[in-house]
C-alpha cells in the first residue's frame, strides 16, 4: 500500500514533468539534436557533384577546413569587424552618457534622442544607410564628392569600416542606456568627496567612475564581441560579403557555403568553430558576472 505522502510526491513529480515537457521537446529538436548533428555533419565530405553519396572522412575535414583560407579569411574579417565596432561603440556610448549625465534643462529630450536607435533593427538601419551610401543618389556619397562608380560599399578598403559604422549607429541607443544606468549607480557622495579633496574632473572619472563601472564595461565588451561574431543582416543588406570578399564575415561565409554551394560538410565545420568561439566568450561573461556579484556582496 502506498502512503498518502508518497502518492502526493509521485503526483507532483508527474506534474513537474508535464510542465517542463513542452520546453524540453523544443530544446531537444531545435537545440541539442542539431548541435550534435552539426558536429557529425562536419565529418562527412559532400561530393562536388550532387547525387553522389557523402563520404565519411572523420576529423580530417575539420583540420583541412580550419586551416584553409576559406575559413581563416572570414575569421579575420569577423575579428576586424569586432575590432571596428566594439571599442568605438563602448567609448561613444560612455562619452555621450557622461555628457548627458548632468541635470540640465531639456536633458530628457536629449536622452530620448540618444536612446532612439534602440528602436531600429539591423535591417532598418542597413536599408537606411544603403540609400545614404548609394553611389548615384546617396547623400553621403554626394558629400564626400563621389558620383557614380562603385561607391563606398564597393570600395575594398572602406566597405568593412562603413558596415561597422552602421552597426555602431544602430547599437548606440543600447550602449547609451547601458552606460547611463552604470553611471547612475556611482554614488555621488564619493565623487563629491574626491572633488573636495581637490581631484580634477578627469582624475575623478578615471580613478573613481571607470573602476566602479568596470563590470558594465566588461559586460558591454563581451556581448559586443558575441554579437559582432553573429553579424549577418548588415552584411547581407549592405555588401553581400563583397567587394571581392572584403566583408565576408564568418556567419555570412557559413550561409554562403551552406545555402549557395550546398556544402553541408564544410559549413558545419565552420559552424562548430563559431560555436566554440561563442561558448568561450559566454563562459568569460559568466565568470565576469560572478565576479561582479562577489564584489557587490563584499560591499
Amino acid at each position: 500500500m502506498i502512503s498518502g505522502r508518497r502518492r502526493t510526491r509521485i503526483r507532483n513529480s508527474a506534474l513537474a514533468y508535464v510542465m517542463i515537457l513542452p520546453a524540453f521537446v523544443i530544446f531537444m529538436i531545435f537545440v541539442f539534436y542539431p548541435l550534435v548533428k552539426t558536429f557529425y555533419l562536419g565529418m562527412y565530405r559532400v561530393p562536388p557533384f550532387p547525387g553522389l553519396p557523402q563520404k565519411y572522412v572523420g576529423l580530417s575535414q575539420y583540420s583541412s577546413v580550419l586551416s584553409h583560407s576559406e575559413f581563416l579569411t572570414p575569421l579575420w574579417d569577423s575579428t576586424l569587424y569586432v575590432l571596428f565596432t566594439v571599442p568605438a561603440g563602448i567609448i561613444l556610448g560612455l562619452g555621450i552618457a557622461v555628457l548627458a549625465h548632468r541635470h540640465l534643462a531639456g536633458i530628457r529630450i536629449f536622452r530620448t534622442i540618444f536612446s532612439s536607435t534602440i528602436a531600429t533593427s539591423v535591417a532598418v538601419a542597413s536599408v537606411i544607410f544603403f540609400t545614404l551610401l548609394d553611389p548615384t543618389t546617396g547623400l553621403f556619397s554626394y558629400w564626400i564628392g563621389q558620383r557614380g562608380g562603385v561607391g563606398i560599399l564597393g570600395n575594398p578598403t572602406w566597405a568593412l569600416p562603413a558596415v561597422a559604422t552602421v552597426s555602431i549607429w544602430q547599437n548606440l541607443g543600447f550602449a547609451f542606456i547601458l552606460m547611463s544606468a552604470a553611471l547612475n549607480s556611482v554614488p555621488d557622495d564619493l565623487l563629491d568627496a574626491a572633488a573636495v579633496d581637490g581631484a580634477s574632473g578627469t582624475r575623478r572619472f578615471f580613478r573613481i567612475t571607470v573602476p566602479l563601472i568596470s563590470p558594465t564595461l566588461f559586460f558591454a565588451m563581451i556581448i559586443g564581441v558575441i554579437s559582432g561574431f553573429q553579424a549577418f543582416g548588415q552584411i547581407d543588406l549592405l555588401t553581400q560579403g563583397g567587394p571581392d570578399g572584403h566583408t565576408n564575415v564568418l556567419l555570412y561565409q557559413i550561409y554562403t557555403v551552406f545555402f549557395t554551394n550546398a556544402d553541408t560538410g564544410t559549413s558545419s565545420v565552420m559552424a562548430v568553430a563559431l560555436f566554440v568561439i561563442l561558448v568561450l566568450l559566454t563562459i568569460a561573461q559568466f565568470l565576469l558576472v560572478q565576479r561582479k556579484v562577489f564584489y557587490a556582496d563584499k560591499r
Partner: peptide, 23 residues
C-alpha cells in the same frame, strides 16, 4: 534538467541553422 535549460543559452541559433533547416 535545469542545467540543460541553462545550457541552451550557450547555443546561439546561428550555430544550428544547418540541421534545423533540414528538420
Amino acid at each position: 534538467m535545469f542545467s540543460l535549460c541553462l545550457a541552451t543559452l550557450m547555443v546561439p541559433a546561428e550555430v544550428t541553422i544547418i540541421p534545423n533547416f533540414r528538420t
